[in-house]
């Protein structure tokens, strides 16, 4: 049932990557601590279901708690910008891991084991994750075209100009943070009930960088590019041992190489390719 686990992993990775894409891609707010919200979702859901709560209630609960913390961190984005914000969000990630490590009720260093199975079987669980991923893709595409997406884009391009034009910058930034972090919480809850074990290392700085790599490689702000990048980068370590051994080296080189040679990521490469192909056709 190897393919099933691949598709499951792929699905919650796509959700996680798209959730960051909402904040960093659409709204232009670089976050270096997004794994914290993935972690908040995972821990919330894990605590709730190990305590006897229903899996179906755990999902919205994880979203609500992650979104609530996202709302608070969103206020930071109103106070500080650009490089300051990058370091602040990185700090949020460290605060999360630093806090969890010292808390007994969160399992401290050992984490939480024995998270109950959602009890719907492997294939339905995969389908559930895939359905959520599809819904998040649809939501992202919808947001991108909506009035809100235009406002996000204006803020990402030039915040001061957007403000001058009457865009309520604070409101849209907070909205982006709440949506993005709540979706990260959903991905975290799905992840926790797939591996049935959460520990703080799964949500550290490296994890934040890995998800950032998915967004960067896919193309900042591009929905399909990020979906493709997240799908590939999440399952490659499971498919190829070489990739698993050198995962961080590959992520590091990819981050650098994409920024250096093709800052638009897969999205802009595909567009370039498409233009060349269609250009040749019209020429013929």
């Amino acid at each position: 049932m190897y393919e099933i686990s691949l598709l499951t992993v792929m699905s919650f990775s796509v959700i996680f990557a798209l959730s960051l894409n909402l904040i960093t891609g659409f709204c232009g707010q670089i976050s270096l601590g997004h794994a914290a919200f993935y972690g908040i979702g995972a821990y919330t859901a894990a605590l709730f279901t190990t305590d006897g709560g229903s899996f179906w209630l755990a999902l919205p609960l994880a979203m609500a708690v992650a979104g609530f913390f996202g709302f608070i961190v969103g206020f930071a984005s109103l106070r500080v910008r650009h490089d300051f914000l990058a370091i602040t969000t990185m700090g949020v990630g460290f605060l999360f891991t630093g806090f969890v490590r010292q808390q007994e009720f969160l399992g401290g260093e050992e984490g939480i084991a024995g998270i109950p199975d959602p009890g719907i079987g492997q294939i339905p669980y995969m389908l559930l994750c895939a359905a959520f991923a599809a819904a998040v893709i649809a939501f992202s595409l919808y947001v991108k075209r909506s009035w809100m997406g235009q406002a996000f884009d204006a803020i990402a391009t030039d915040e001061d100009t957007a403000r001058t034009l009457g865009v309520d910058v604070a409101r849209y930034k907070l909205t982006a943070f709440v949506f993005g972090t709540a979706l990260a919480g959903l991905a975290g809850a799905l992840f926790a009930h797939y591996v049935k074990f959460v520990e703080v290392e799964s949500f550290d700085f490296i994890e934040s960088i890995s998800v950032l790599a998915m967004v960067i490689v896919g193309g900042i702000g591009s929905v399909w590019g990020v979906v493709v990048a997240a799908a590939f980068l999440s399952v490659l370590p499971l498919l190829l041992q070489v990739f698993a051994d050198y995962k961080l080296l590959i992520y590091g080189v990819l981050l650098f190489a994409v920024m250096y040679f093709a800052p638009g990521g897969i999205d802009s490469l595909m567009r370039m390719l498409w233009r060349r192909i269609s250009g040749r056709r019209t020429a013929e």
Partner: peptide, 27 residues
């Protein structure tokens, strides 16, 4: 690594630098 990307938008150097750091640790 940095000189060729000095004139790109600020997030470019930041992300490239993170990538370099992760790759260095692995090396």
């Amino acid at each position: 690594f940095y000189e060729p990307i000095l004139n790109k938008p600020p997030h470019v150097a930041l992300i490239a630098s993170i990538g370099l750091f992760v790759a260095m640790e692995e090396i």
